[in-house]
């Protein structure tokens, strides 16, 4: 005789539903973790040290004030300073070997936007937005870490706070960033 239990009270169904939810939530959790974890870099570059000794952001990321992309330092830029230093540890030896072989260092950019988002550094720097506002307190990081909630709501939030209602028409326009 069939037990007179509605389907949603059956144990097997309930377990399956819980399992599916767990997989989804777990998958999402892992996904979010991966998007927020700093990617592996060829050299674990200590931002904190370099900022600590007084290097300006734009000394290495030269393009920020004048163009869309801040850019990554060239091997020769690293070597410009580092050739005067003794390669005390493995990482510094790596820098030396990249420079001697005239190879580019395969840095992995961290703060990247997807293809359909067109971001331009120059107007933001001109408007007086500091680098930390978006990239976090780099002085306390070794490798650059992705910042949480680097999403459209966050962009718009800042645009609204920093602009007049008239300017916000432009700063909230789809065509300003998406084309």
């Amino acid at each position: 005789m069939k037990p007179n239990v509605p389907w949603w009270q059956r144990g097997s169904i309930r377990i399956s539903i819980v399992l599916v939810l767990l997989i989804l939530v777990g998958g999402a959790g892992v996904g979010i973790y991966y998007t927020q974890a700093p990617p592996e870099q060829p050299i674990p570059f200590p931002h904190n040290f370099h900022v600590g000794i007084g290097a300006e952001c734009m000394y290495c990321h030269t393009g920020a004030a004048t163009g869309p992309s801040a850019g990554l330092p060239t091997t020769n830029k690293c070597w410009g300073c580092h050739q005067q230093l003794e390669p005390r540890n493995e990482n510094l030896k790596l820098v030396a070997s990249f420079a001697e072989n005239e190879e580019s260092i395969p840095w992995v950019p961290v703060a990247l936007q997807p293809d359909f988002v067109k971001f331009n550094h120059q107007p933001h720097i001109t408007a007086g937005v500091s680098c930390e506002t978006c990239h976090g307190d780099v002085a306390s990081m070794t490798v650059a870490e992705p910042q949480p909630r680097h999403n459209m709501g966050w962009c718009l939030d800042c645009h609204q706070k920093m602009s007049t209602p008239e300017d916000f028409v432009r700063l909230s326009d789809c065509a300003t960033c998406h084309y």
Partner: peptide, 15 residues
């Protein structure tokens, strides 16, 4: 498919 208030054109937001 939305109207851009700033540029007064029709924009297509691909995403």
């Amino acid at each position: 498919s939305v109207h851009s208030q700033e540029e007064q054109i029709n924009v297509q937001v691909y995403n």
